[in-house]
Nucleic acid binder design. Structure first.
Lengths: 338, 338
DNA sequence: GGGAGGACGTTATACGTAACACGTGGGGCG
DNA sequence: CGCCCCACGTGTTACGTATAACGTCCTCCC
């Protein structure tokens, strides 16, 4: 119990199982056929699981002089293109027992920083987006210092959290539309179970409800242009008074909404206003340019990293949400007949 | 000389400098103030440089029980948003002497694969995009097995290369426009010194020249919507007969061209056709949808990785360019008056 | 009944680095 | 003149793992 502060080694496992360290290595390395009895192997595996043993990769790499790891150098991370490159490469690598580590040649970080400085690996800590939920259990298993990005403060596993003030962004959108005179709004929501999207729905509904006579209908769509197109088209052709504005959970959904609206022969923003959230390049590529909420992703990353570094030093991370700002462009206007 | 096949260790450096291994560690670790004379330190640094010494990170990490490396978990790599997150995080981390390794929670790679399997680090090999040129010198310094992605076969440092058949893509674009009847074309070129962009210009010019009476003018723009907008507007308002088609080096440039054309009061494709290259989500978000060349990024990644694995096994990598396909959408039509 | 060999493990070692704990002269100071 | 301490290093160790090289029994067969 006294040594619970340090990670268990194969020697600890050996002691717990009453065997030598070598035996542990053999069993866990799957090299024990005919060298260790089934029952002993069982006992070793049990002990390893109980102690939460994870091999020290630095030691293994040193011993083997090999890492089964490959570096993928890409020009930057800003392109969807290289996202696909990574996906394909990682799949094949995984099939061969290799890992892939990304080194996105950073534009903001001085010229030609040594790629290998980024690869010292085995980890000191983790900065995790709450949307990568399935990876979190594995992370917690390692008891590594953890900082969450944009996570439900209640459900963040006790880890420190850095959040964008998305709730305020949604309120800004609502206020903007209300002040233009909109009262019937369609919320095009991302069909993804995530705290951040629930927050958006909640805040939008609450803010609109503060003004008498407002209505918010909701349509759900997967985060893709086609999905948003279909959902929007369905929602806008439903009988009853048509919404005068569509509030989208992100810019990509808004791009889909544009296509649906255009397909119905309506004009943006004359017949119907549209808002997004993210302020991607996409927002200014489409016509008219999209009124949206700008999220300062770089600042978000900076703050997250600062928090993690603070945790690593035993200090208390800076708190407070990161402010976001509404960017008004050409996709919003007063509702027709006003 | 005989041991030139294996990487030099700090002990090799020590021997070359006529000091102990400990001294080397002190000098290179910058902990020698008042412990080692300036002249001796000089000698050690000299020897290290001469031997091309690089510390073994696995050994260092093992010794220190610490890695100064942090993991950033993101939902996927497909969002520009998290690209910004990475940039900001990496900048701050670098300021603190930390590296960042990306673990893009892979959608295609089975559920919740252990993030730490990807982090075995120190590298066996490198898969490098030719666009990350500034990083390449550092890579070569380590003599790691290397496979280049989309690189000039002549200038790839002797490394194996996996290429998309961009040249053929450009030829398909040219043939498409020619068969529609276009004869005056504006080439909106990426203002980036890179083999792949030179190739596009060369192939386009060659293919168009095969038909008598064709003209290709060139405008250069940085790869951004605003840059492309400005360059296109300038090019289209130049005196003389206006081009009937704009061939863009990628989809983002095409989005900028759209805005310039619209600003000039022209219609796509009635007055002028536009083509892109990449087939990003952007291509179907804009109106009309963009005729472009689809690059199979995932396949590209797969082929690259396969090649690298082959090199690591001492085998000969599969050769042959990866085919690409023209996707005809609504942005191209016969030229006006035809 | 004796030796060979399989079943089951163990002991010992090396990977390359960082840093603690020691030397060892020589010069300054009392 | 004697002592101490500083300048300049060196010897040694440990980090945690994988694996080669050894034991032991016990069984089985001649």
């Amino acid at each position: 119990m006294a040594r619970s502060s340090t990670r268990p080694t194969s020697r600890d496992v050996a002691q717990a199982a009453g065997v030598s360290q070598a035996a542990v290595s053999l069993v866990l390395g799957d090299k024990w056929r005919g060298r260790v009895s089934e029952t002993t192997a069982q006992r070793v595996r049990e002990a390893a699981r109980e102690l939460g043993y994870r091999p020290n990769l630095a030691a293994r790499n040193l011993r083997l002089g090999r890492t089964r790891t490959v570096l993928l150098v890409v020009p930057a991370l800003t392109t969807e293109f290289f996202a696909g490159v990574y996906t394909g490469a990682a799949r094949v690598a995984a099939e061969h027992g290799f890992g892939v580590v990304l080194y996105p040649s950073p534009e903001g970080i001085g010229p030609a920083r040594d790629p290998f400085a980024s690869a010292q690996t085995a980890l000191d800590g983790v900065l995790a987006s709450s949307m990568a939920a399935d990876a979190l259990t594995a992370i917690r298993g390692d008891q590594l210092p953890l900082v969450m990005l944009d996570s439900d403060p209640e459900g963040s596993l006790g880890a420190a959290t850095v959040n964008l003030d998305i709730g305020d962004g949604v309120r800004q959108v609502a206020d903007h539309l209300l002040s233009l005179g909109h009262r019937r709004v369609l919320h095009l929501a991302a069909d993804v179970p995530s705290w951040t999207f629930e927050l958006r729905a909640r805040e939008l509904a609450a803010r609109m409800a503060a003004v008498p006579g407002t209505q918010v209908h909701t349509a759900r769509a997967p985060i893709s242009i086609e999905g948003a197109l279909a959902a929007t088209e369905t929602a806008l052709t439903t009988p009853g008074p048509r919404p005068t504005a569509v509030v989208c959970d992100d810019d990509k959904l808004a791009a889909g909404a544009y296509k649906a609206i255009r397909r119905l022969g309506l004009r943006i923003p004359d017949d119907i206003s549209v808002t997004g959230l993210d302020d991607l390049a996409l927002a200014t590529a489409i016509d008219p340019e999209l009124t949206t909420v700008r999220l300062d992703a770089e600042l978000f990353g900076e703050r997250g990293m600062r928090a993690l570094l603070a945790v690593l030093e035993g200090a208390l991370p800076e708190s407070g949400d990161i402010p976001v700002h509404l960017v008004v462009r050409g996709s919003t206007a007063p509702p027709p007949g006003r």
